[in-house]
Amino acid sequence: MTFYLLISPWLLGFVLLSAIPLVGAFVMSFTNYDGLNLDYLRFVGPDNYARALGDADAQYALGRTLLLMLVVVPVGLVLQLALALMVNQPIRFSNAFRTIFYLPYVIPVVAGVWIWKIFVDPSGGLVNAALGVVLPDFNVRWLVEYPTFVLALLTIWGAAGGGMVVFLAGLQGIPAEYREAAMIDGASRTQVTRFITLPLLTPVIFFNLVTGIIVALQILVQPMLLSPGILGLNPGTVPPRDNYFYVVHAYIEIFTKQLFGYGSALLWLLFAVVLGLTVLLFKTSRRWVFYGVEP
């Protein structure tokens, strides 16, 4: 009984703010709800789901999203691990380095987008100015010509610190004796990393992989804010085609086109994809994630 009393705030919140809305959203996905007016509300059966499966924009957006995920997640993981290994060495100023790598993670998305917009801006940006020294008349408009590239950099840069800290936690959980024992047996630094550290880190890699995938599939605010315009960003901004991702599509269907019913169906389909991928990862994890040692 005590248990239920203690968790009651969460349980109540879960029922009111998660369970009921989720059921509502599920019901909504079978209606033509437009968000404005209940007068026209009607059940449309599975129409929205049928439509989603035939929606060329949704397919395109899903393709772009998976592509982004396939780039950002592995590159991000490797970088996070590398950063953690680097600052975990006995080096001077390791605290300062750790702080530098961690900072972008705490920079809010609006600020992060501005920072990159100005950084790659053809007229006032450092990137083109620096490249212009080497290549005269260099004039790439990054946000127009390579918007997904900039977005990938922004997300990798922004997420690296968070992943690094989790890796650091994992590294510090590995008993030092293991590595020392291997060293005494004549193993090189690389060998220790490859055969001792990495296997013991697989649970952390797995954790960062799963969270990385979930975040990448849901990307919304960054691409919307990263549109090439400089004046400002409003909730109705449509990103360039390259950065038209799945949740962006769902968001536009819902909040710009007022297709709340259809947009909900799109989001449920995404949830199914996320769930499927997660289950799949958990299944494969038995083969490569090493749970042998409790630190």
């Binding site: 703010l17 509502g24 959203a25 979930i214 947009g263």
Partner: peptide, 14 residues
């Protein structure tokens, strides 16, 4: 693990 927007849209309506 539920995608943010899946939860937010019905919360918004609520």
């Amino acid at each position: 693990m539920v995608p943010n927007l899946v939860l937010f849209v019905p919360q918004f309506v609520l």
